[in-house]
């Protein structure tokens, strides 16, 4: 049985500590649209590994500090 992975993120917190960086600023740094950042932050979209690294790079932190995961029960 495959387990479901729920990807969580700390983008909101990291934006706050990055001088209240706006979603638009983060989007520009990562080279995506603001809508994509909004969706990632709200947990509605799981980014590709490449984009996840770009977001982490925008905050100057390791990817593990931005994204985490939770194992959900057997499906």
């Amino acid at each position: 049985m495959a387990k479901k992975i729920e990807i969580t993120n700390n983008i909101r917190k990291l934006r706050f500590f990055a001088n209240e960086m706006t979603q638009q600023e983060l989007a520009e740094k990562a080279g995506v649209s603001r809508q994509t950042i909004v969706a990632i932050e709200a947990g509605k979209y799981s980014p590709s590994l490449e984009l996840a690294f770009l977001i982490a790079d925008a905050f100057g932190v390791k990817i593990g500090e931005v994204f985490d995961y939770e194992m959900k029960g057997d499906k």
Partner: peptide, 10 residues
Amino acid sequence: ANSMVGDEMH
């Protein structure tokens, strides 16, 4: 230009 960005999610 920013408002019309197409990316991986799109």
